[in-house]
Computed example of a mutant assay.
Amino acid sequence: MKGKKHTPEQVIAKLAEGDRMLNEGKTVGEVARTFGITETTWHRWKNTYGGMKGPDMKRLKELEAENRKLKIMVAELSLDKAMLKELAIGNF
């Protein structure tokens, strides 16, 4: 069964609400059940998005987009380099 995908904004909102619930005395298990996730997912979210706020999330998205572009550029340049090596050797 495939779980539903949460956006980073939704995760940050749920973490804030969950922290409030934990401060009221609820357990991690109760908080996780409230959001329909497992405790493992809760801890993974805390590790990934724990201290983030709105501007931090925007910056993270920008960095991820830039990283994607750079990876594509590296792949294209590596392909160009391999083609030029083949041409230089004469195996075409």
Rank of each mutant, 00 (worst) to 15 (best):
Y49H: 05
E24P: 00
M83C: 07
G36T: 04
T48F: 09
N47C: 11
P55Q: 03
G50P: 00
P55I: 07
V74W: 06
M73S: 13
A16H: 12
I72E: 15
K53N: 08
K85C: 04
M73Y: 11
M83A: 09
K81S: 07
E39K: 14
M21R: 15
I37T: 09
R68P: 08
G29R: 06
K85F: 07
K71S: 14
K81G: 00
A65Q: 13
W42I: 05
W45Y: 09
M57W: 03
V11M: 00
T7M: 08
W45N: 00
T41N: 08
L63G: 03
L77Q: 12
G18T: 00
L60T: 06
T40G: 14
T40I: 12
M57D: 00
T27S: 10
E64L: 05
V28F: 04
V31F: 01
Y49D: 00
G54L: 14
A32H: 01
L79C: 09
K69R: 15
L84T: 03
G18S: 00
E30M: 04
E64D: 10
M1Q: 10
T27N: 00
E9Y: 08
L77E: 10
E24G: 05
K2C: 05
T48Q: 13
G90H: 08
A75W: 07
K46R: 14
E76T: 12
E17V: 12
I12Q: 08
E76Y: 13
K46T: 08
D19K: 12
G50R: 00
T38L: 04
V28A: 01
K69G: 06
G29W: 05
R20L: 13
E39Y: 06
I12C: 06
K81Q: 11
E17D: 14
E64V: 03
K26P: 01
D56I: 02
G90A: 09
V74N: 10
N23F: 01
T41C: 13
K4S: 10
E66G: 09
L15Q: 02
V28C: 02
T48R: 14
F92P: 09
G50D: 00
T34V: 10
F92K: 15
G51Y: 02
I72W: 11
L60V: 05
H6A: 08
L87M: 13
R68G: 03
T40R: 15
P55G: 02
G18F: 01
R68W: 13
L77A: 09
D80W: 12
L77R: 14
